[in-house]
Nucleic acid binder design. Structure first.
Length: 563
RNA sequence: GUCCCAGUAGCUCAGUGGAUAGAGCGGCUGCCUUCUAAGCAGCUGGCCGCGGGUUCGAAUCCUGCCUGGGACGCCA
């Protein structure tokens, strides 16, 4: 249980007591909010309950604060509490409780900060899902980093998480991709072939064609064109997916499952495909209508601003149809309790119809959350770098990682709220690479690690260190900051806001650097032996917290850093 | 035209209806005989886009406007 929740509980109990005592009478008590005051003089926690109660109770907030405070029965965590104008109650954590947490943290190890708000519910985080028609570029990278950190954190918060990549490999964009590779293949072998109008121009298309020539030879020229394209397409698709997988791996993004769109139309296991089942379900519910030869989903009736085509007059299902089948598969087929989709800003218009479709499938719309990762504008100095997959003129994930590095890249993307458009200046990111927040955090960990390795070198055993000696303000401040990770994990998981992680990491690093400056750990003075042991324990605990934080962000925790 | 996102320090951005609005970078001063100076201490820097409203209390909620970006297909 979080300390915050403990505080809330004792406040609630005190309010009830005040009610029973007849000194405060309110019909419905508001939710009890416990906040972290900005000003450390106001303690570790505060509640504004008296202020919120004042109107209903028709009483002076300070007076209410007094009446409630008197009835609070604090546990061992709390050193003191007091009413504060204009009507807060402030709580201060006790030093000896804080000191004992050092041992709790060490005992928890890499589980420290884990919570159980997910209560084991099955959640899918589906992200990136770039069409396998080209490499991953900068915009996708943001969603990739966001999704992986969010998935990590939700797992830490007690969800059973599946990370999934949806491979859109069944549509007309794929046809254009296949034809583009086919064209380059022919051209490379001296045949005069013309790139289709909607073809992909990037150099990688020719690279793939060249690889295919290496393994398959020129023989495909002899096949009838449709057969050649099918064969080329199959190989090219595999290669492209592999390329994407490698790219994402380079930035530390991995998936539990790669789900192919084509599977939605197969019916190997069930008697009917996911697609058939989903359409049948919509039809049963009266959500489909035929108009001008096409099959429409009546999404207006469910709150969207227009209806959407599911099956074209040509008989071909649309991308939306696949998506309906896919979500049917997620919720009904695989029984996820909750699904989080991370989409790029160019898909934000599709959220209402997807929500409508999900509810038409009999799933509570709130079980589907679509996070929109906003645009990334790329700059190189003053120049804006335009991103267009068609022309092949874009900065890829690969180039970005090569230039900026994986850790800095992840940190930079993570630190911004997903809903905000961001500007990424490559020049700046590279130039500032020696003194930036990434190194600040990692350096704190490296300093931490070097203390521990020196202790190991000297054979110092601090297992029996006495934590009650940790009374220096910087020691207690460090412990306080360390403990906040537990709250943070819950907050990130509940609000789906991984951008708090890097900011927390900065604060943790600051607290550690301050401790490092002011509290010599391994002392040469024999009189300080006991203190050395206690501080080593704190350093070991801090390392646990650094590692956990960096791991959640998917960043490395270097033991050494040297220029 | 409709809808979505944003506007906070010179720049890039945090900020959960609360108490004195923060960080990094930049700029200016200082600090290494002791566990890493990728650090620390100090200074500099703000009509929180503008106007109204709700509230005991608004950067935060509502509303109108301004500015910037995005989405509005039988493409994916």
């Amino acid at each position: 249980m979080l300390v915050k929740d403990t505080v809330a509980a004792i406040v609630a109990a005190a309010l009830e007591q005040a009610n029973r005592d007849g000194v405060i009478s309110v019909d419905a008590a508001p939710d009890i909010e416990i906040e972290r005051p900005n000003n450390p003089e106001h303690g570790d926690f505060a509640t504004n309950l008296p202020l919120r109660l004042a109107r209903a109770a028709r009483a002076n907030p300070m007076q209410l604060a007094q009446l409630i405070s008197e009835r609070i029965q604090p546990g061992p965590e709390i050193a003191s509490l007091e009413p504060a104008p204009p009507g807060f109650i402030n709580f201060k954590l006790s030093d000896d409780w804080l000191q004992r947490q050092v041992e709790t943290v060490i005992a928890a190890g890499d589980k420290f900060g884990s919570a159980d708000v997910g209560t084991g519910r099955k959640v899918m985080v589906e992200f990136v899902s770039v069409n396998p028609t080209g490499p991953v570029h900068v915009g996708h990278t943001r969603g990739a980093v966001l999704g992986s950190a969010l998935a990590n954190t939700m797992q830490a918060a007690g969800y059973e998480v599946t990370r999934e990549y949806y491979i859109n490999d069944a549509g007309s964009q794929m046809e254009a991709f296949y034809r583009s590779v086919w064209t380059r293949y022919q051209q490379a072998l001296g045949r005069d072939a013309q790139m289709p109008e909607n073809g992909y121009q990037g150099d990688y298309i020719a690279d793939i064609a060249a690889e295919i020539i290496d393994t398959e030879g020129p023989g495909l020229l002899e096949l009838p064109e449709p057969a050649a394209i099918r064969r080329i397409g199959d190989i090219a698709r595999e290669k492209m997916v592999e390329l994407i997988r490698d790219d994402l791996d380079a930035i530390g993004v991995n998936f539990d499952n790669w789900f192919s769109e084509r599977w939605l139309f197969l019916n190997e296991r069930a008697p009917t495909s996911d697609y058939d089942q989903a359409i049948a379900k919509l039809r049963e519910g009266g959500h489909l209508a035929e108009r001008s030869g096409a099959l429409w989903f009546n999404s207006i009736a469910l709150g969207d601003d227009r209806d959407n085509v599911v099956v074209r007059s040509s008989g071909e299902p649309t991308y939306f149809a696949s998506d309906i089948a896919y979500h049917y598969n997620k919720f009904s087929g695989r029984e996820f309790n909750r699904v989080i989709d991370i989409w790029g800003a160019d898909h934000q218009g599709h959220v209402p119809r997807m929500k409508a479709a999900v509810s038409a499938l009999g799933v509570k719309p709130e079980n589907l959350t679509v996070l929109i990762s906003q645009m990334v504008t790329l700059k190189r100095g003053d120049e804006t770098v335009r991103a267009s997959k068609r022309t092949g003129d874009f900065v890829t994930l690969r180039e970005l990682v090569d230039e900026v590095g994986m850790d800095a890249c992840r940190y930079f993307f993570l630190a911004r709220a997903a809903s905000t458009q961001m500007e990424f200046d490559l020049e700046l990111a590279t130039r500032e690479s020696s003194e930036n927040p990434v190194y600040y955090v990692q350096y704190a960990h490296a300093r931490n690690a070097s203390i521990l390795s020196l202790a190991a070198e000297r054979g110092i055993d601090y297992a029996n260190g006495d934590v009650s000696l940790l009374t220096h303000p910087n020691e207690l401040a460090l412990i306080r900051t360390m403990l906040r990770l537990s709250e943070l994990i819950v907050q990130v998981a509940e609000n789906l806001e991984p951008h708090h992680l890097p900011h927390y990491a900065m604060e943790l690093a600051t607290a550690f650097h301050h401790f490092y400056e002011n509290c010599r750990v391994i002392s040469a003075n024999p009189e300080d032996n006991e203190l050395t042991l206690a501080r080593l324990k704190l350093v070991a605990a801090a390392q646990v917290v650094f590692r956990r934080t960096l791991t959640l962000m998917g960043m490395s925790a270097p033991e050494r850093m040297e220029r």
